[in-house]
Amino acid sequence: MRYSAFWLACAAGLALLVTAPVSAQERSAVKQGFKLAAKTNKTILLFRPSVSVGEQSMGGLFEPNAAWTEQAKANIQAALDRFQARLGNAVVVAPEAYGDEARNLEEHMALFAAVSRSVIEYQFFVGNRLPTKKRDNKADMFDWSLGEGVAALPGARNADYGLFIYNKDAYGSTGRKVLQVFAMLGGVAVTSGEHLGYAGLVDLRTGDLLWLNADAEMGGDVREKDGSEKRVRQLLEDFPGSDIGKTDAP
């Protein structure tokens, strides 16, 4: 009995040591040399946020829920309307896109999400950085891009920067939660639910990512109004030139 307790303690201690870098993970970054003060003559183009909400099946698959997604879209848009005036600079909402333009915008949003995931995995998670990027990171470089194709997005000609916002929320199904409990009893860590939230400011001439706030464990239940407000505040905290996150209660 004493021996098993000893081994379990050793395992738990090592688990803490190995997982420590995860908790030390960074969540936001700014491109070297980029500064955006409040009340400049720069214009920020706000693209309609990408929002998808669903359940995480027992096997971990995402199962979209149309009603939750529609509710979350409305909640997040309402929260954005409130926070928009506090971004510090002129914000214009991107014009509605149709046909090929809409598909192009959707693909750029998907690219933004893929770039954000790469930043989280290979830059924000310091212990997992790619060798070719380690040298850059020593010099505090943040060099990621969506490419010059962003210049052709609807509304881009009349703005300086584009603000991309992406949310994907998968709430653990009952089966997933049960699996989590049984896995825990077996000493295996199984997560229930996934809450991805990325906000990024992009140079609309070059496509370079100037600022990114990205996390795979966002707070706020986007199906609720209060939760969406919390989510949007969390996404936009420390946005260059804004006071969001600096004066708000946690």
Binding site: M1, Y3, S4, W7, L8, C10, A11, L14, A15, G187
Partner: peptide
Amino acid sequence: MLRRSGFALAIATL
């Protein structure tokens, strides 16, 4: 029995 299972769990975790 518990000692063995604890040991096995620890080894598996490690």
